[in-house]
């Protein structure tokens, strides 16, 4: 195991790349807002919104929070929490549905 604390900037994007990533995020946000005004099937709209939200979430976590470049243990800690959260939300919805039926 290396002695160096993993807080160095090696491999991090340049400021120009950060601006490009932010521009992509802004475009996705505009697309999210625009798409809800189109007359599309609700299931399709919700699927597209979930995909776009997931892409934005991942881009911020990977590039701005540097998970793509940092030690994998940080990713496990964070995405472990995210997966657990999704599980809790789905479990709660399932419990309430079964209690209501």
């Amino acid at each position: 195991m290396g002695a160096q604390i993993h807080t160095n900037k090696e491999g991090h994007p340049t400021p120009q790349k950060y601006v490009i990533i932010a521009a992509i995020l802004a475009v996705i946000t505009m697309a999210e807002v625009a798409i809800v005004y189109f007359n599309l099937a609700t299931a399709f709209l919700i699927t597209i919104l979930i995909i776009m939200t997931t892409v934005k979430f991942s881009m911020v976590a990977m590039f701005f929070m540097h998970l793509k470049f940092d030690n994998k243990l940080f990713s496990y800690l964070f995405f472990g929490g995210v997966v657990l959260t999704i599980g809790v939300i789905l479990a709660l919805i399932a419990i309430f549905k079964s209690a209501g039926s």
Binding site: F74, L77, G80, G81
Partner: peptide
């Protein structure tokens, strides 16, 4: 672990 404890703690908190 070779990782800074404060950074590890922050990620655990965020999770």
């Amino acid at each position: 672990t070779g990782l800074d404890h404060r950074k590890m703690l922050m990620w655990a908190f965020l999770g």
